[in-house]
């Protein structure tokens, strides 16, 4: 029941994102779509992923997208072209994607096996601190590169 509510919300808002003419309204419905995905994560008992989705995508990425829209001068006058003449390639791409998704679903043992004392947040932290400590530090380096690159690109001089 909750799943279907979230799924319908997600699909409807995703359709509105690609069909609305005003780009600002598209961005607002993208927020609704991301909220629905976060709800799905919580519903599927992945609370950490849900929190990440809320904090990073809605808290940071969407703010950045809205700023980018509002930074662009006179974007509100233009209406987006939402119809495409590339419908046959798009259909092919969708079919390939569905086939690949079905194939990978087929290879996944469901329902996933979860240990008795599994705690998503603590086990993730333990893995990051022991087995995956090098990728963890590389993430920090990657964030540094992103920050320096963003500043270098965004500054005028």
């Amino acid at each position: 029941m909750i799943f279907y509510f979230l799924a319908v919300t997600l699909i409807l808002s995703a359709i509105l994102v690609v069909t609305l003419k005003n780009i600002f309204h598209c961005a607002l419905f993208l927020i609704v779509a991301i909220l629905a995905i976060a709800g799905l994560y919580f519903h599927l008992q992945a609370p950490f992923l849900g929190v990440v989705q809320l904090i990073i995508y809605i808290g940071a990425i969407m703010v950045l997208i809205l700023f980018a829209i509002m930074l662009t001068s006179r974007i509100s006058d233009r209406l987006l072209q939402t119809a495409s003449r590339q419908s046959i390639p798009a259909l092919l791409a969708v079919i390939v994607f569905i086939l690949l998704a079905l194939k990978s679903l087929d290879k996944t043992p469901l329902p996933a096996h979860i240990g008795k004392n599994f705690d998503p947040i603590l086990d993730l932290g333990r893995a990051l601190m022991t087995a995956y400590v090098l990728p963890f530090e590389v993430v920090s380096l990657l964030l540094l590169v992103a920050l320096v690159g963003a500043i270098a690109l965004a500054r005028k001089d």
Binding site: V51, A60, L64, L71, L122, G125, F136, S140
Partner: peptide, 30 residues
């Protein structure tokens, strides 16, 4: 048209937001 400074601060915010998310599970088991 908004000032481009907002965008710069937004970019820096994204980076440190991701950092905070990564720190949370690690701090709990530290």
């Amino acid at each position: 048209q908004y000032n481009v400074r907002y965008y710069l601060l937004g970019l820096a915010f994204v980076i440190f937001d991701v950092e905070a998310i990564f720190l949370l599970p690690c701090v709990l088991v530290m």
